[in-house]
Simulated scan of single mutants.
Amino acid sequence: MIKSMTGYGRGEACGAGKRVTVEAKAVNHRYSEVVVRLPKAYMVLEDSIKKIFLQGISRGRVDVFVNLETDGEVTRQVKVDKQLALRYYKSLRDLAQELELSCDVGINALYSLPEVITLDEPEEDMDEVARVVDAAARQALDGMMGMRIQEGSSLAEDLFLRLTALRRRIKAVEERSPFVAADYSHRLQERIKELFGQTPVDEQRLAMEVALFADRSNITEELVRLNSHLEQFQKALASSEPVGRKLDFLVQEMNREVNTIGSKSNDLEISRHVVDLKSEMEKIREQVQNVE
């Protein structure tokens, strides 16, 4: 069954001292594209996250948002650079002597100087962090794909109904088509009578004119191709493969045949059916834009 290109999924996993949340939002797109947004310190994980989502989609744009929070307490070490503090102190004392000022440098002044005291962050196990992010990302992908499948089922149901409506209209055109030439012949004869009264008419010339009209207005080939496209469209809807581009192409071809029927038929009743066909096909075209 077909899949929609839109969907949303969320995943969460804990480990390596982190709580990881991944959200994935998929929208329509001509090609497949995955955009990952995560903290700068973890950009090294971007490619692996992209690969996870690209395995699940063949068409559409997916925005992936990754949030990492510290899970529990983090033990950070305070590091004091004693040698640097001593050099600061000696330099300040020498400067005070040279300027003949009192040297009143306390501990508060020393520890506020740059890099005397630093916090040593615990080193993270990036392999373990990557494992946790991977688990959350796959969970988000599963949720997103579930929604895409569910929406795809609704799309297929709607499209099947619209195909049924198209077939009814096409059948009405097929039933009307054989009478077009005969009606034209009748109208032509009535028009001749209006113009020339009871003046004899060259029946052979009249028959030739009607035959030419019948040939120009013949839509048999267009109807055959249109029905063939409908069959292919219906088979594609039942496929488990990505068929969005194929459906889009078939809609264009069906539109082409319907336009040709409208221009060739030269019949008011068929023209009305053509208007209805084009209206229904426009709705199908809009729905197909959502199919993967």
Score class of each variant (00 low, 15 high):
K3N: 14
S4F: 08
M5C: 06
A13V: 02
K18N: 00
A26I: 08
V27S: 11
L38Q: 04
Y42M: 02
E46Y: 01
D47C: 00
K50L: 01
S58C: 04
V66N: 02
T70Y: 03
D71P: 00
G72F: 06
T75K: 15
A85N: 06
L86R: 15
L101I: 05
L110R: 12
Y111L: 15
L113V: 04
I117G: 06
T118P: 05
D120F: 01
D120I: 02
E121Y: 02
R131C: 05
A135G: 02
A135P: 04
A136Y: 03
G146F: 03
R148D: 14
I149G: 01
E151D: 14
E151N: 04
S153R: 15
S153W: 07
S154G: 06
S154N: 14
L155M: 07
E157M: 09
F160L: 13
L163E: 09
K171T: 08
V180Y: 13
A181M: 06
Y184L: 05
Y184N: 05
S185F: 06
R187H: 13
R191A: 11
G197K: 09
E203M: 13
Q204T: 10
E209D: 12
A211R: 00
A211K: 01
L212S: 10
A214R: 01
D215Y: 00
N227L: 04
Q234G: 09
S240A: 14
G244P: 03
K246I: 08
L247C: 09
L247Y: 12
D248Q: 07
E253L: 10
R256A: 07
E257I: 01
H273C: 12
V275D: 11
D276P: 06
L277I: 03
S279T: 12
M281W: 11
V288Q: 12
Q289T: 07
